[in-house]
Design a protein around this nucleic acid. Structure first.
Length: 207
DNA sequence: CGCACGATTTGCT
DNA sequence: GCAAATCGTGCGA
Protein backbone atom coordinates (compact mmCIF):
# COMPACT_ATOMS: atom_id res chain seq x y z
CA UNK A 1 0.00 0.00 0.00
CA UNK A 2 2.96 2.23 0.66
CA UNK A 3 3.80 2.92 -3.00
CA UNK A 4 0.28 4.18 -3.43
CA UNK A 5 1.31 7.40 -1.73
CA UNK A 6 4.28 7.94 -3.99
CA UNK A 7 1.91 9.45 -6.54
CA UNK A 8 0.62 13.01 -6.92
CA UNK A 9 -1.71 14.14 -4.16
CA UNK A 10 -4.57 14.87 -6.55
CA UNK A 11 -4.48 11.23 -7.69
CA UNK A 12 -4.29 9.76 -4.21
CA UNK A 13 -6.86 12.06 -2.61
CA UNK A 14 -10.03 10.50 -4.07
CA UNK A 15 -8.78 7.05 -3.05
CA UNK A 16 -8.71 8.13 0.58
CA UNK A 17 -12.45 8.74 0.61
CA UNK A 18 -14.17 6.03 2.58
CA UNK A 19 -10.88 4.94 4.14
CA UNK A 20 -10.80 4.46 7.90
CA UNK A 21 -8.09 6.23 9.88
CA UNK A 22 -7.54 5.03 13.43
CA UNK A 23 -5.48 6.50 16.23
CA UNK A 24 -4.83 4.73 19.52
CA UNK A 25 -3.81 6.63 22.63
CA UNK A 26 -3.78 6.09 26.37
CA UNK A 27 -7.24 7.59 26.46
CA UNK A 28 -8.59 5.06 24.03
CA UNK A 29 -9.18 4.52 20.33
CA UNK A 30 -10.92 6.76 17.85
CA UNK A 31 -11.49 5.79 14.22
CA UNK A 32 -13.04 7.82 11.47
CA UNK A 33 -14.18 7.25 7.92
CA UNK A 34 -12.75 9.95 5.70
CA UNK A 35 -15.41 11.92 3.84
CA UNK A 36 -13.59 15.03 2.62
CA UNK A 37 -10.00 15.85 1.59
CA UNK A 38 -8.02 18.47 -0.30
CA UNK A 39 -4.87 17.93 -2.37
CA UNK A 40 -1.87 20.26 -2.41
CA UNK A 41 0.88 19.71 -4.92
CA UNK A 42 3.57 21.94 -3.50
CA UNK A 43 5.31 21.82 -6.82
CA UNK A 44 5.11 23.99 -9.84
CA UNK A 45 2.73 26.85 -9.21
CA UNK A 46 0.38 25.77 -6.47
CA UNK A 47 0.17 28.92 -4.37
CA UNK A 48 -2.03 27.21 -1.83
CA UNK A 49 0.60 24.72 -0.76
CA UNK A 50 2.82 25.26 2.24
CA UNK A 51 5.66 23.82 0.18
CA UNK A 52 5.15 26.27 -2.64
CA UNK A 53 8.11 28.43 -1.66
CA UNK A 54 10.45 25.52 -1.08
CA UNK A 55 11.59 23.63 1.97
CA UNK A 56 11.44 25.29 5.38
CA UNK A 57 11.71 23.88 8.90
CA UNK A 58 7.94 23.82 9.19
CA UNK A 59 7.14 21.98 5.98
CA UNK A 60 10.17 19.70 5.88
CA UNK A 61 8.01 16.69 6.72
CA UNK A 62 6.24 17.17 3.38
CA UNK A 63 9.57 16.51 1.67
CA UNK A 64 10.03 13.28 3.62
CA UNK A 65 8.71 9.79 2.90
CA UNK A 66 5.10 9.42 1.79
CA UNK A 67 2.37 7.94 3.92
CA UNK A 68 3.51 9.97 6.90
CA UNK A 69 1.65 12.65 8.82
CA UNK A 70 2.24 16.35 8.21
CA UNK A 71 0.79 18.54 10.94
CA UNK A 72 0.73 22.30 11.14
CA UNK A 73 -0.49 24.92 13.56
CA UNK A 74 -2.56 27.81 12.25
CA UNK A 75 -4.64 30.79 13.36
CA UNK A 76 -2.85 30.63 16.68
CA UNK A 77 -5.09 27.81 17.86
CA UNK A 78 -5.73 25.06 15.34
CA UNK A 79 -3.93 21.87 14.33
CA UNK A 80 -4.52 20.37 10.90
CA UNK A 81 -3.47 16.94 9.63
CA UNK A 82 -2.21 15.92 6.18
CA UNK A 83 -1.06 12.77 4.43
CA UNK A 84 2.33 13.21 2.76
CA UNK A 85 2.51 12.17 -0.90
CA UNK A 86 5.30 11.74 -3.49
CA UNK A 87 8.64 10.02 -2.73
CA UNK A 88 11.25 11.53 -0.44
CA UNK A 89 12.64 14.78 -1.78
CA UNK A 90 9.42 15.88 -3.41
CA UNK A 91 6.59 17.58 -1.53
CA UNK A 92 2.83 17.11 -1.74
CA UNK A 93 0.11 16.58 0.78
CA UNK A 94 -3.54 15.80 1.33
CA UNK A 95 -5.41 17.79 3.96
CA UNK A 96 -7.90 15.68 5.90
CA UNK A 97 -10.91 17.98 6.05
CA UNK A 98 -13.71 15.87 7.50
CA UNK A 99 -14.78 12.41 8.52
CA UNK A 100 -17.44 10.33 10.22
CA UNK A 101 -16.54 8.85 13.61
CA UNK A 102 -17.00 5.09 13.38
CA UNK A 103 -15.32 4.07 16.63
CA UNK A 104 -14.66 5.76 19.96
CA UNK A 105 -17.47 8.27 19.66
CA UNK A 106 -17.55 8.70 23.43
CA UNK A 107 -13.90 9.70 23.55
CA UNK A 108 -14.30 11.98 20.55
CA UNK A 109 -17.18 13.69 22.32
CA UNK A 110 -15.08 14.20 25.43
CA UNK A 111 -12.43 15.91 23.32
CA UNK A 112 -14.86 17.97 21.26
CA UNK A 113 -17.54 18.73 23.80
CA UNK A 114 -20.72 17.17 25.15
CA UNK A 115 -23.20 19.20 23.17
CA UNK A 116 -21.52 18.66 19.81
CA UNK A 117 -23.83 16.94 17.31
CA UNK A 118 -22.52 13.59 16.07
CA UNK A 119 -22.01 14.83 12.54
CA UNK A 120 -19.91 17.79 13.70
CA UNK A 121 -17.40 15.74 15.71
CA UNK A 122 -14.90 15.69 12.84
CA UNK A 123 -16.51 18.12 10.41
CA UNK A 124 -13.67 20.47 9.46
CA UNK A 125 -9.87 20.01 9.48
CA UNK A 126 -9.16 21.36 12.97
CA UNK A 127 -12.14 19.56 14.46
CA UNK A 128 -10.99 16.31 12.86
CA UNK A 129 -7.57 16.64 14.50
CA UNK A 130 -9.13 17.28 17.89
CA UNK A 131 -11.53 14.35 17.61
CA UNK A 132 -8.73 11.94 16.75
CA UNK A 133 -6.49 13.49 19.40
CA UNK A 134 -3.74 14.38 16.95
CA UNK A 135 -1.16 16.65 18.62
CA UNK A 136 1.13 18.91 16.64
CA UNK A 137 4.02 16.74 17.79
CA UNK A 138 2.68 13.79 15.78
CA UNK A 139 4.06 15.45 12.65
CA UNK A 140 6.29 12.98 10.82
CA UNK A 141 4.54 9.93 12.26
CA UNK A 142 3.97 6.96 10.00
CA UNK A 143 0.25 6.58 9.31
CA UNK A 144 0.70 2.89 8.54
CA UNK A 145 2.20 2.05 11.93
CA UNK A 146 1.04 2.40 15.56
CA UNK A 147 -0.47 4.46 17.03
CA UNK A 148 -2.01 4.98 13.60
CA UNK A 149 -3.56 2.66 11.07
CA UNK A 150 -5.16 3.40 7.74
CA UNK A 151 -7.48 1.03 5.96
CA UNK A 152 -8.54 1.89 2.44
CA UNK A 153 -12.04 1.26 1.20
CA UNK A 154 -11.84 -1.66 -1.26
CA UNK A 155 -14.72 -0.11 -3.16
CA UNK A 156 -14.09 3.63 -3.00
CA UNK A 157 -17.32 5.62 -3.07
CA UNK A 158 -18.00 7.99 -5.92
CA UNK A 159 -16.06 11.18 -5.32
CA UNK A 160 -17.44 14.62 -6.00
CA UNK A 161 -14.96 17.41 -6.54
CA UNK A 162 -14.78 21.17 -6.30
CA UNK A 163 -12.40 24.05 -5.79
CA UNK A 164 -10.45 24.06 -2.53
CA UNK A 165 -11.98 26.06 0.27
CA UNK A 166 -9.19 27.66 2.22
CA UNK A 167 -7.00 28.77 -0.65
CA UNK A 168 -7.18 32.46 -1.45
CA UNK A 169 -5.43 34.78 -3.81
CA UNK A 170 -5.04 34.86 -7.56
CA UNK A 171 -4.76 31.39 -9.03
CA UNK A 172 -5.65 29.98 -5.64
CA UNK A 173 -9.04 28.46 -5.14
CA UNK A 174 -10.06 28.40 -8.77
CA UNK A 175 -6.81 27.05 -10.11
CA UNK A 176 -7.35 23.42 -9.21
CA UNK A 177 -10.55 21.47 -8.41
CA UNK A 178 -8.72 19.47 -5.79
CA UNK A 179 -11.27 19.20 -3.03
CA UNK A 180 -12.76 15.71 -3.02
CA UNK A 181 -15.75 14.71 -0.93
CA UNK A 182 -18.61 12.23 -0.62
CA UNK A 183 -21.56 14.03 -2.13
CA UNK A 184 -24.47 14.26 0.24
CA UNK A 185 -22.61 12.97 3.30
CA UNK A 186 -23.71 14.99 6.33
CA UNK A 187 -20.20 15.10 7.80
CA UNK A 188 -18.77 17.00 4.82
CA UNK A 189 -17.97 20.57 5.84
CA UNK A 190 -20.10 23.28 4.25
CA UNK A 191 -18.27 24.83 1.34
CA UNK A 192 -17.08 28.32 2.03
CA UNK A 193 -15.59 30.41 -0.72
CA UNK A 194 -12.08 31.47 0.18
CA UNK A 195 -11.91 34.89 1.78
CA UNK A 196 -10.61 37.51 -0.60
CA UNK A 197 -7.05 38.35 0.26
CA UNK A 198 -6.78 41.53 2.25
CA UNK A 199 -4.85 44.33 0.63
CA UNK A 200 -2.61 45.63 3.41
CA UNK A 201 -2.60 49.41 3.71
CA UNK A 202 -3.65 49.09 0.18
CA UNK A 203 -3.05 51.93 -2.14
CA UNK A 204 -4.29 49.55 -4.75
CA UNK A 205 -7.89 48.38 -4.64
CA UNK A 206 -8.39 44.74 -5.61
CA UNK A 207 -10.01 44.26 -8.94
C1' DC B 1 14.34 42.40 14.31
C1' DG B 2 9.57 43.62 13.25
C1' DC B 3 5.18 42.86 11.05
C1' DA B 4 1.36 40.91 8.43
C1' DC B 5 -1.31 36.98 7.78
C1' DG B 6 -3.12 32.11 7.67
C1' DA B 7 -5.14 24.87 4.23
C1' DT B 8 -10.21 27.81 10.91
C1' DT B 9 -13.73 27.84 14.40
C1' DT B 10 -16.91 29.98 17.18
C1' DG B 11 -20.10 33.14 18.86
C1' DC B 12 -22.68 37.31 18.55
C1' DT B 13 -25.72 40.54 15.75
C1' DG C 1 -23.57 37.47 7.97
C1' DC C 2 -19.32 39.18 10.17
C1' DA C 3 -15.48 39.64 13.22
C1' DA C 4 -12.60 38.16 16.94
C1' DA C 5 -9.37 34.89 18.92
C1' DT C 6 -4.35 33.96 18.92
C1' DC C 7 0.73 32.87 17.65
C1' DG C 8 4.17 30.64 14.65
C1' DT C 9 5.96 31.25 10.22
C1' DG C 10 8.04 33.65 6.60
C1' DC C 11 9.31 37.67 4.29
C1' DG C 12 11.10 42.33 4.13
C1' DA C 13 14.39 45.67 6.11
Amino acid sequence: MRPLFDRPAQEVAPLLLGAVLTRVSEEGTVALRITEVEAYSGEGSDPGSHAHRGRTPRNSVMFGPSGHLYTYFTYGMHVCANVVCLPEGRAAGILLRAGEIVQGEDLARIRRGDAVPKRDLARGPARLAVALGIPLSDGGADLLAPPYSLELDPHPPLAAMSARTGVSGPGGSDAYPWRFFLDGDPTVSPYRASAPRKRAGGAEPPR
